[in-house]
């Protein structure tokens, strides 16, 4: 059981990122545990909310800023809905960290292209902050697609990143009045973009976005190993036992969620279609 026993954590702050997304700043109740807790970019936690079971949520914070962790949650259903109704001071259960993180050592010195759609920016936010805090990474470019200007999340972060030299380019599927930026799916932001080697792209978003993006990146000359993405699957245990997160012969919770295109090409991934 111990492996399924959550650690209790208190919500110390809630940041509303957009109408659907809230960032929960959390602190483990056990002070020692809180102090020694550590994780890596791209990993996730299984989150418990009273009567709602558990759901996997990625870290949107970076371990370079210890003391609290942050989970950004999109309102999607029962558990995420209940979590959105919680107030600061309330407790949630957390177990983890789980999953294979982004290989930050291998990415060192590279120019990094981040591409995010919607809630997909949550995990990448952790990675970007990790890179900025640690230093030792090349130029950072972020392409971020949202449905509408109102849906753009993490605005404070984006402002800060810009100040720190991150090239942030935003697009919206549908513009509203006052939007003078790019309109269209996030792939439209790729045109004219030049990222010099050594380079990698880190992609996070809905399956449909990933499906269209991967071939685009290949066309731009990114090698398979330079295209890194995260796969999402229904998860129950997070530790490779329950079987729910199967992706061909892998289990996303322990063999992922981070995969590069070279790995994905070896697998039959239905939602990505034929990967060539």
């Amino acid at each position: 059981m111990t492996m399924y026993l959550p650690q209790m954590a208190k919500i110390v702050k809630i940041i509303r990122e957009n109408p659907q997304i809230k960032t929960f700043v959390l602190e483990f109740r056990d002070k020692e545990y809180n102090k020694s807790f550590s994780y890596e970019p791209g990993q996730f936690m299984m989150v418990s909310v009273p009567h709602c079971g558990e759901a996997p949520i990625s870290f949107s914070s970076s371990s370079t800023r210890p003391g609290t962790i942050e989970l950004s949650v999109r309102l999607a259903g029962k558990l995420t809905g209940a979590m959105h109704r919680l107030q600061p001071g309330a407790m949630v259960g957390l177990r983890g960290p789980y999953g294979i993180p982004f290989n930050m050592k291998e990415l060192a010195d590279q120019n990094l292209l981040f591409v995010a759609g919607g809630i997909g920016l949550a995990p990448l936010r952790g990675v970007i902050n990790y890179c900025l805090d640690k230093g030792g990474y090349g130029r950072i470019t972020l392409l971020y697609g949202s449905r509408s200007p109102d849906d753009i999340a993490f605005k404070t972060d984006i402002d800060l990143w810009r100040k720190n030299g991150v090239d942030c380019r935003l697009s919206v599927d549908t513009a509203t009045e006052g939007w003078d930026g790019q309109v269209g799916v996030v792939t439209t932001l790729l045109s004219g973009l030049e990222i010099e080697r050594p380079r990698s792209s880190l992609v996070c978003g809905p399956p449909i976005m990933i499906r269209f993006l991967l071939p685009e990146l290949s066309r731009m000359g990114f090698r398979d190993r330079e295209i890194i993405t995260t796969m999402e699957r229904h998860m129950k245990c997070g530790i490779g036992v329950c079987g729910h997160c199967h992706l061909d012969n892998r289990l996303v919770c322990v063999d992922g969620p981070v995969f590069d295109l070279a790995q994905l090409k070896e697998l039959a991934v239905e939602e990505l279609g034929e990967l060539t």
């Binding site: 009567h51 245990c237 036992v241 079987g243 729910h244």
Partner: peptide, 25 residues
Amino acid sequence: CTCFTIVDQPLAETHGIRLRQWDSC
């Protein structure tokens, strides 16, 4: 066959049981 799911079964407003249940792919 050992696949399972994990669910919360509320017993009252204030408490409940977390169960591991057989599931099927």
